[in-house]
Design a protein around this nucleic acid. Structure first.
Lengths: 240, 240
DNA sequence: CGAAGGGTTGATCAATTTCAATCGCGGTGG
DNA sequence: CCACCGCGATTGAAATTGATCAACCCTTCG
């Protein structure tokens, strides 16, 4: 059974057995990392490609004022881009959110693979496009949605992404992050996030047990967020 | 002299003469469009790849509430992504900002090119990565920068991008857009944009002649925006 | 000439942040 | 075992930012 990363790419292109074998080998040197561990720091020269095989991670940037902005959540199957020698250094950092197992593929090896296996290159490219769509949705949220819609929308997005990799537990989605984390992802204050969560809980859109947010049924969230249901269905269909 | 699109890609990978010839031919059927013309509308099924050869365009999305969010500005040399058959339909629209000349490459043709010419594929991939970096910077702005910093930061970004394609006039950067447009790009109100612009003008960070914003020297903007100077230099070096 | 699209400004309103305090819980050292 | 510490959650009140509402002023263009 190939790992999550390979399974995801297989969903994007018709990979041959050989393609799969190459990918599995490339990601075979995976190792576990603790939570809150910086995998890549801003200013590092771009090193290996990382692929998340288990656990969550996130991209973030610390501003001169000391505030943090989270720009993306990475979950099993997601890879960080390659920055193929273009940029002199990373302009942001990547950190594990939970304990995670990460595969590091030396950049040269990944480049060689991309040059030799066009189907793999195609799949990586499509994964990139999907990520870009997520970034655009994030921008729309930050720019034009109210704080309540914004929170609800992120929850919807995470819900379908976890659903797509069969990661939902019996109770639905568990968010493995603190309110501070959510605040930094959505450009808000922890205090305000807390009030918004209370609002959403009162609206029966989510549950909070012992501080942790859980979402069993996203339908209320979808309504509140103005989440594009077609988009949801489309993604869920892809997952099926 | 190849068009802007080809020139840009050439900057990302060592294209052979044959690569260049293929690209030039693919983008030879360009035609002019007026300003404010929708090239692609949300809901369309993904059609041809578009490449901007002259003029500006932008990606945007209209929310159910009727508000608009602009997610990216496209300038000469930029291409829209391919959404290679993955998504059933576009989740946003693309419109010309100024009169523009646009090349439409049939999707099948572009896919064939990517499969047959790995260097072109590589260059397109890198262009994609650069765009993604821009999106991330946009998210950071929207999430954690004040309105003044946010406006200043966008100006810096546009300044270096135009500089990189030798598009600066003698007086510097002319922004071909209304304040409403800026507001929709930055998630603000036109009224507030107006006040921020006044502030920036008072701080001698930009000029406004007959309503149009002009930036001759971005150094004040860079300071106000907290714009990463290394990033600036890196990009300018690339341009040189 | 009249209408429309920008731009500009003032006054008021509402959403968020900021500041401050308190609480609960898990872990740790004595 | 227990006091203490620290992180995250929670709540209230004050301060601030940016949005909204409402005019009014240009310039352009049919």
């Amino acid at each position: 059974m190939p790992n999550r990363f390979v399974r995801k790419l297989r969903g994007f292109a018709d990979l041959t057995q050989r393609d799969v074998k190459v990918l599995v080998e490339a990601t075979s040197r995976a190792r576990p990392y603790p939570a809150k561990f910086d995998l890549i720091r801003e200013g590092d020269e771009p090193g290996p490609v990382i692929a998340v095989l288990a656990g969550w991670a996130f991209r973030y940037k610390i501003l001169p004022s000391g505030t943090r902005q989270i720009m993306a959540f990475l979950m099993p199957g997601d890879a960080c881009d390659l920055n193929i020698g273009l940029l002199a250094e990373m302009d942001h950092s990547i950190q594990t959110l939970t304990p995670a197992t990460i595969a590091m593929v030396p950049r040269a090896e990944m480049v060689a693979i991309l040059d030799s296996y066009p189907r793999i290159a195609r799949a990586m490219y499509i994964a990139q496009l999907v990520d870009e769509g997520t970034l655009r949705a994030w921008i729309v949220s930050m720019g034009r949605r109210s704080s309540i819609e914004r929170v609800a929308h992120l929850m919807c997005e995470l819900f379908i992404r976890v659903h797509a990799i069969d990661g939902l537990s019996d109770e639905g989605l568990h968010l493995p992050m603190s309110q501070v984390m959510l605040a930094d992802a959505l450009g808000m204050t922890p205090v305000h996030i807390n009030r918004v969560l209370k609002h959403l809980r009162d609206a029966r859109a989510l549950k909070m047990v012992r501080g942790a947010v859980t979402i069993s049924d996203p339908s209320n969230l979808v309504r509140i967020a103005g989440f594009d249901e077609n988009y949801l269905h489309r993604r869920l269909r892809t997952a099926a």
